[in-house]
């Protein structure tokens, strides 16, 4: 399925149409509600999904995701539920790429071999692990690639030119650019200098660039979309879900994702 991701980004570049990757927190506020949110996002035109699996000590996450993941864990979410979610989404007919976003220890305890096998079997496309350093990618990319799964590297504003080159050389379908030196969380304004930094970066990279952390609304997404291959929205969407009664989550998520997709297509 990693080929699908690669093709998707190639097409997006040709059509100059940035992609939208929303984040859904597994089991928040319940398994069913998160499944509905995921379906609504995909139905509204999300290009792919990040399925966040809660970890007890999420060091890269701000208050919004901490609360959501903590709540989900308290209510019994298990790591293996993510495979059930992928299966449920595939059964419902959604074809977009599905990426597992979590922390390294959960994959480590599940076992890399088993993880890759389960992901591949259920129809997942890859993993995003913020605490897996680039240095360790060579240990796991061969296994993932053998199952046609992607492992997504991060780059940050503090990354040295050397590390950026290293990330670019992984042959990943895209790089996850952390827009701020900081943790996840919705922010009122985009970090100053982000757009300029992205333009410079984009020129130097072979691999498509997707921007996450701190993008909160359709307008910001559109701005970033002008200089990146894709946009991730996590905290803002989780915040929205936290404020919505369960019966309306589907509609609210669908509407929000639809607005972002439109904003990305309008320029």
């Amino acid at each position: 399925m990693s080929f699908q991701l690669q093709r998707m980004f190639q097409t997006a570049r040709l059509q100059r149409r940035p992609l939208f990757l929303p984040y859904i927190c597994l089991g928040y506020p319940s398994y069913q509600a998160s499944l509905q949110a995921a379906q609504a996002a995909l139905a509204a035109g999300a290009s792919a999904l990040e399925l966040g699996v809660p970890f007890s000590d999420p060091i890269a996450d701000g208050p919004t995701l901490q609360k959501a993941t903590h709540y989900s864990l308290q209510h019994g979410t298990k790591f293996a539920d993510v495979f059930r979610m992928i299966q449920d989404l595939r059964r419902a007919g959604f074809r977009q790429p599905l990426l597992v976003m979590s922390y390294l220890n959960l994959v480590e305890q599940f076992g890399w071999e088993d993880f890759a096998a389960a992901l591949s079997k259920t129809g997942g496309d890859g993993a995003i692990l913020p605490d897996l350093p680039l240095e360790k990618f060579p240990l796991f990319t061969p296994l993932m690639r053998s199952k046609n799964l992607a492992l997504i590297p991060f780059i940050a504003p503090t990354s040295s030119p050397q590390r950026i080159k290293m990330a670019d050389a992984q042959g990943a379908p895209f790089l996850y650019y952390v827009s701020v030196t900081g943790v996840t969380g919705a922010r009122k304004t985009l970090p100053s200098g982000l757009l300029r930094a992205l333009r410079t970066l984009g020129d130097r990279l072979e691999t498509p660039l997707v921007v996450g952390f701190g993008i909160s609304n359709p307008a910001q997404a559109a701005q970033v979309g002008k200089v990146a291959d894709g946009v991730i929205i996590a905290s803002a969407l989780v915040q929205l879900i936290s404020k919505t009664p369960v019966s309306k989550i589907s509609g609210v998520v669908g509407r929000f994702c639809g607005q972002v997709v439109n904003a990305l297509h309008e320029f």
């Binding site: 913020p130 350093p133 680039l134 991060f154 503090t158 590390r163 952390v178």
Partner: peptide, 20 residues
């Protein structure tokens, strides 16, 4: 040099901190 005591140790942190 990579910070390992046998298999233990290392630097499993977000990319933002690697340079630090």
């Amino acid at each position: 040099p990579e910070g390992f005591f046998g298999p233990y140790g290392g630097q499993y942190v977000p990319e933002t901190l690697m340079v630090a």
